[in-house]
Design a binder for these strands. Structure first.
Length: 477
RNA sequence: CGGGGUGUAGCGCAGACAGGUAGCGCACCGCGUUUGGGACGCGGGGGUCGGCGGUUCGAGUCCGCCCACCCCGACCA
């Protein structure tokens, strides 16, 4: 078992991340370049993410469906920007059943095209609208450089695809789902985010407008944690998704798509983790509490286990793991579960059996101040409160970190300093050429143009031309 | 695709310069003692040395070619 310490975050953030993912048994490298295996502990986390999102999707009227992995390659060519954006990273199947295929098939990099094909078939009337479908699946993109969870050749996600009668409805859906993502991120994952619109150069290939939630990782780099696209009528025209309106005239639909992937697990790791390992938000943690029994002999073992049985009977509302592994010391288990980010540790030993107590240790507060002894009586409510408190605390901590590292530089010199170790919230002229120059000079890109920024005007941080919108620039993942 | 690095037991590495039939730590198995912050003793099991070819009586080691993976850049959820 892992005994060496992790590299520290300050020493080598990237290496800390890689080692942690492997050691915490979230994932492992697969035999194919850029691919990974998501192990049971990591998948359990994903399942909780899925549940939290799925419930929100259903509450906003969506239903799940399954679409095929393979798509005729000609579909990709129907939308100009889409084909340009995705062609370089497609995996293509050319042989099936030992025969060369008449038309090559692509392994879906995303499903807009096949969705478009099917929606064109299904939608005839304004009465058919809106269509609100979500897919839980995996997609393949032949990325040049991969990293566990953040960018792998194949990744799991959900992709929502909707069709609407009017532009307003399409826009409303786009923003509604952005809001769902933000709500999920902040309230379930305790990850504070900035909601905003993507610049034209950063938007999804084929979208009219893209929106994202952006999160700040522990090294201050930005991560796009979820996206929602207003596709306008681009795909509707490319795939002929039309309906007859009340006046009996043909209209093109307005469509949207939105996605959140297993990348979000990377965000949780990099936002909350510390040098001891993961710190998982209680609402998503596979195990919210782990019980570590302590005993010296068979008599003590029996008493401790009996006490644990009676305690667990009252904890059915909480996801509790009993670590009854033999042959390892409590100290080993303490470290092991800290590495794996379980929010609360419950220690139960002979002293606790005698006094009717347990020791609780919260993961987000290392050492003595996070540890206290409480009565076995009423443990469930104490634990529930504690988990809520941890959820709030780690959110507040991440929020404070984001605020402390988001700056408003006054000029471009200061801007260059800022984006070395933080985010820059600045006036931007809106010109793609200016944006490209900034990227080239600083490696910082526009993460988003925040939605809730104050209006007004100023001068562009780089070219100093008049500017009417503010943008967040940062180095991204 | 450019730059860097690494492939030897499940993991981390030594052995390579000076060729002679593979070793250390952790993990794993057994027994015993331990157990409130990463326990210890004794005994064990496990390796086509990334692949192919060459040199040689003999290659982990020397030569050639290839492959894979990781890290840093350009592309991206």
């Amino acid at each position: 078992m892992a005994k060496e310490r992790l590299p520290s975050r300050s020493d080598n953030f990237s290496e800390w991340y890689n080692r942690l993912v492997l050691r915490a048994e979230l994932a492992d490298y697969a035999p194919v370049r850029g691919c990974m295996v998501i192990r049971p502990y990591g998948w359990a986390l994903w399942e909780n993410i899925q549940a939290a999102l799925d419930q929100r999707f259903k509450a906003t009227g969506h239903m799940n469906a399954a679409f095929p992995l393979l798509i005729p390659s000609s579909f990709m060519e129907r939308e100009r920007e889409h084909v340009e954006g995705f062609s370089p990273e497609l995996a293509v199947v050319t042989i099936g059943g030992g025969e060369e295929l008449e038309e090559p098939l692509i392994v879906r990099p995303t499903s807009e095209t096949i969705i478009g094909h099917m929606y064109a078939k299904w939608i005839k009337s304004y009465r058919d609208l809106p269509v609100l479908i979500n897919l839980w699946n995996s997609v393949v993109r032949w990325e040049m450089r991969t990293k566990l969870f953040l960018r792998t050749t194949e990744f799991y996600w959900q992709e929502g695809h909707t069709a609407h009668a009017t532009e307003e409805e399409g826009m409303a859906e786009t923003l509604r789902m952005l809001e769902v993502y933000a709500d999920f991120a902040e309230n379930e994952a305790a990850v504070p985010v900035v909601k905003g619109r993507k610049s034209d150069s950063e938007k999804f290939a084929g979208a009219k407008q893209s929106f994202s939630i952006e999160a700040m990782m522990g090294d201050t780099r930005a991560l796009q944690a979820g996206t929602s696209h207003n596709l306008g009528q681009n795909f509707a025209r490319a795939f002929n998704i039309r309906y007859l309106d009340q006046e009996n005239t043909q209209q093109y639909c307005w469509t949207t798509s939105w996605g959140l992937s297993t990348r979000f697990i990377g965000a949780i790791i990099m936002v909350h983790g510390d040098d001891q390992g993961l710190i998982l938000p209680p609402r998503l943690a596979p195990y919210q509490a782990v019980i570590v029994p302590i005993f010296k002999n068979e008599d003590e073992r029996r008493d401790v286990m009996e006490t644990i049985d009676s305690i667990r009977a009252n904890l059915s509302e909480i996801r509790v793991k009993l670590d009854d592994r033999e042959g390892m010391t409590p100290g080993y288990k303490f470290n092991d579960w800290e590495l794996r980010g379980v929010p609360v540790r419950i220690e139960i030993g002979p002293r606790d059996v005698a006094k009717g107590t347990v020791v609780l240790a919260r993961r987000d507060q290392p050492g003595r101040e996070g540890r206290r002894t409480v009565n076995q009586q009423g443990l469930a409510s104490v634990l529930t409160e504690l988990l809520d408190d941890i959820q709030t605390s780690i959110y507040q901590r991440a929020k404070a970190f984001l605020q402390a590292n988001k700056h408003e530089p006054k000029d471009f010199e200061e801007f260059k300093q800022v984006v070395e170790g933080g985010w820059a919230d600045v006036w931007w002229c809106g010109d793609a050429g200016c944006e490209a120059e900034i990227k080239q000079q600083t490696r910082a890109t526009i993460r988003c143009i925040p939605l809730d920024e104050h209006s007004g005007d100023g001068i562009c941080i780089h070219c100093e031309k008049p500017a009417t919108e503010r943008a967040i620039f940062a180095r991204g993942y």
